[in-house]
């Protein structure tokens, strides 16, 4: 046990160091304007998409339920956060640097409230029915956001302008927020999955009846995973709104939900590293293939079908790539090489 703890400690250290290096490199590239505005924006988008994919993975991968309304939670979080910063930054109560973190929490909490309201009825159902009912709720949220009586809050289809950081004076600000949140979300969902709480959720996925018979409060844990995912999606929505500066309901439609789902499915349902990789690739790829934008969704759908047909568990399945283990392997190989060299 002592050995294991020591090993875990070493793993933490390696992960922290590698993350810090990645952060520093990207930050220098962005704030030093080595990356132009456009690609800096793509980096931030990658962080946001990773957050979304990892959060959906909590429900679709760990709990094993198909949710088709994730963009709805994003929408709610985006509008809640945007309205907050519009109010406090405009009247000068606080700067956006202070307001954004608060706005993210607000966005997350509002989305979580929606998660509870939707989750309580929806989670009584399973499989196909749950998928359809979340799809229904997602659509209701979007239709409502367009409705005239909510115009004061959403500005309807015209779109709502959102406070953003000045690109001229501080190009790295948005990246810092997005990266930190992303790192936190990855860590939290990893540790959650390996705790008694996560174990309960996985047990429900494996066999709900047996889980309940072993003392797992299935209703509670299903709702917990669902609401946690909704909260994180709300935070991501808040980030997204302040990144692009202009939001309207069509940015959070069914297709957006599907895009997030595709990231999770391709990466491997249940694998956080899979979600991270596929969210990164699927954000960069369309930017590289600009000329093919008309074919993007067509290509996605074909890939999706083929993956389901020939590798239903996705790229990584439930496997996690561990950076420290990779480092470990590399070092060992060097040691071995050095030894054979000596001999």
């Amino acid at each position: 046990m002592g050995k294991l703890k020591k090993k875990t400690g070493a793993y933490y250290l390696v992960n922290t160091v590698l993350t810090a290096i990645l952060f520093t490199v990207l930050f220098l590239l962005i704030s030093g304007r080595t990356l132009n505005n456009y690609w800096s924006g793509v980096v931030v988008l990658i962080c946001i998409n990773v957050i979304l994919a990892v959060s959906l993975n909590l429900v679709t991968g760990i709990l094993g339920q198909l949710v088709l309304g994730h963009a709805g939670f994003m929408l709610v979080g985006a509008y809640a956060a945007a309205n907050f910063t519009r109010a406090v930054v405009t009247n000068g109560t606080m700067s956006l640097y202070v307001a954004l973190p608060i706005a993210m929490v607000i966005g997350g909490l509002v989305a979580a409230v929606f998660g509870v309201v939707i989750g309580i009825p929806a989670l009584r159902l399973r499989g196909d029915y749950l998928a359809i009912i979340t799809l229904g709720f997602g659509e209701i949220i979007r239709v409502m956001a367009n409705a005239s009586f909510l115009q004061p809050v959403t500005n309807g289809a015209m779109g709502l302008s959102v406070k953003t950081f000045s690109n001229r004076t501080d190009p790295g600000a948005m990246f810092v927020f997005a990266f930190v949140v992303m790192a936190l979300v990855i860590v939290i969902s990893y540790t959650f999955g390996r705790s008694r709480h996560g174990r309960s959720v996985i047990a429900i996925r494996e066999d709900e009846i047996a889980a309940e018979a072993m003392g797992v409060n299935t209703t509670y844990y299903k709702l917990f995973a669902f609401v946690l995912a909704a909260f994180i999606a709300g935070v991501a929505g808040a980030l997204y709104a302040h990144h692009i500066g202009m939001i309207d309901p069509s940015k959070f439609d069914f297709n957006r939900s599907v895009e997030i789902l595709i990231m999770v499915v391709l990466g491997g349902m249940g694998s956080i590293s899979g979600s991270v990789i596929s969210a990164t690739v699927l954000t960069i790829l369309p930017e590289l293939l600009r000329g093919f934008s008309d074919y993007r969704m067509l290509l996605y759908s074909i890939i999706l079908i083929c993956v389901m047909l020939f590798r239903p568990s996705g790229l990584l399945g439930r496997y996690e790539i561990s950076l420290p283990k990779l480092v470990d392997k590399l070092l060992h190989r060097k040691e071995k090489a050095a030894k054979t060299g000596e001999a």
Binding site: R199, I202, E206, I209, R318
Partner: peptide
């Protein structure tokens, strides 16, 4: 009705954890 994709140890832990509680914040951090 085992939790098939889980390890043997985790199968046992699922039933055990009602007696070994800690909150979700302790778990996440």
């Amino acid at each position: 009705r085992l939790f098939k994709a889980m390890t043997v140890l985790d199968n046992v832990k699922v039933a055990m954890q009602q007696h070994r509680r800690y909150n979700v914040v302790s778990a996440m951090f």
